[in-house]
Computed example of a mutant assay.
Amino acid sequence: MKYLARTATGNPLLGDETGYVPLGAVEPDLETVRDALPRAAAGTLGSVASATADPVPAADLSFGAPLASFGKLWGIGLNYAEHAGDLDEERPTEPASFMKPSSALTGPDGPIRLPPRSQSERVTAEAELAVVMGRTCRGVDEGEVSDVIAGFLPVIDMTAEDVLQQNPRFLTRAKSYDTFLVPGAAIAVLEGPLDLDGLSVRTEVNGEVRAENEIRNMLFPPAEIVSFHADAMTLEPGDLFSTGTPGAAPIAPGDEVRAVVESIGSVTAPVTR
């Protein structure tokens, strides 16, 4: 597994299990992580072993978001049958997608800032696997999706559930408060086949597992989600799809939320108001 990331000051990095090096030490012609996404999708991104610099352990680095700015931010609702049942919702027949504004993003360490109680008294946090697009594409078959995906990362998605319950049409508002999307610090770039189906996604609050399920139990797997949306629009490097949560957990100031995607990574953020 390779990882694309940035330092807290915005310097692009390439990493593996040994640590991180400046991206330019491997790919001198690339200036940003976004520049590296097409090569990540094509499988031609260089390796840390070939770098002209020594790797630095992740523990010795301070990370920012992996991209200075993402593209389109898509979310998928009700993508695990069990979660849909928990919400008394019918199983969708196609991906139930929504969009979030870029202002909803916060750094990989948060914090998650809850809205004033006058606006919402019940916010939930949801761990999700996110897909990051690596190449511009339109009309992609499911079998070709791996050629246009740069990689994956864990995200924490938030919902103001009481806002949503007022009216289903308020979904965008319920999902769009500032800091309501926390991306992991590194994009995991696959170097070979990985059985995503066998991996688990887990929502934790204060160290307690609140929801967990395997990607195999998604109603619409990542490849189908990307192909479905590529039929409707041009997808571009840096576009992100949050593929749905196994379950949500109410959060309050002082809590610590963690999203864990097995073999891909984790992201943790404190909750404030």
Rank of each mutant, 00 (worst) to 15 (best):
P221H: 12
D54G: 09
R34M: 07
R117V: 13
P95L: 09
R216V: 11
R6A: 00
A186P: 02
T106Q: 04
A40D: 06
A25E: 12
F180H: 08
E236C: 09
A125V: 12
S120E: 06
T18R: 15
P92Q: 14
D147M: 03
L196H: 05
A58C: 05
A127T: 10
A230Y: 01
L199K: 04
A259I: 07
E161P: 01
L235N: 02
S62F: 07
E126A: 12
A269C: 10
M133A: 03
M99W: 02
D88K: 15
L37H: 04
E224C: 02
A269R: 07
G139N: 08
P222V: 06
D255C: 04
A8G: 10
A188Y: 09
G75E: 04
D157Q: 11
P92D: 12
P193K: 13
A185R: 15
T234P: 04
M218H: 04
E212M: 08
E144D: 14
E214A: 07
S176N: 10
N217L: 07
E214H: 13
S263D: 11
L13T: 04
L114K: 05
A65E: 04
P237I: 11
G64F: 11
L37N: 00
E191T: 15
P221M: 04
D60P: 03
A174E: 00
G64Q: 10
S50Q: 14
V21P: 07
D162W: 07
L194F: 05
L30M: 07
T179P: 06
P92T: 14
M158R: 04
G15E: 14
H229S: 06
R117C: 09
S50T: 15
G24V: 03
P28Q: 01
I251W: 03
Y20L: 13
R210I: 00
L87R: 13
D255F: 13
T159R: 10
T93S: 14
A53T: 12
T234F: 12
R216L: 08
G151C: 01
A40E: 09
T234N: 00
V201Y: 05
G184V: 07
Y80D: 05
V163E: 06
L199V: 11
G10I: 01
L37V: 03
A49H: 14
V155K: 03
D141G: 15
E256D: 12
D16F: 06
S227A: 15
V271N: 10
E208L: 08
T234H: 11
A59V: 14
E191A: 13
E89C: 13
E204L: 15
T179F: 03
G19E: 12
S227M: 10
M218W: 02
E126S: 11
A269S: 14
K2L: 14
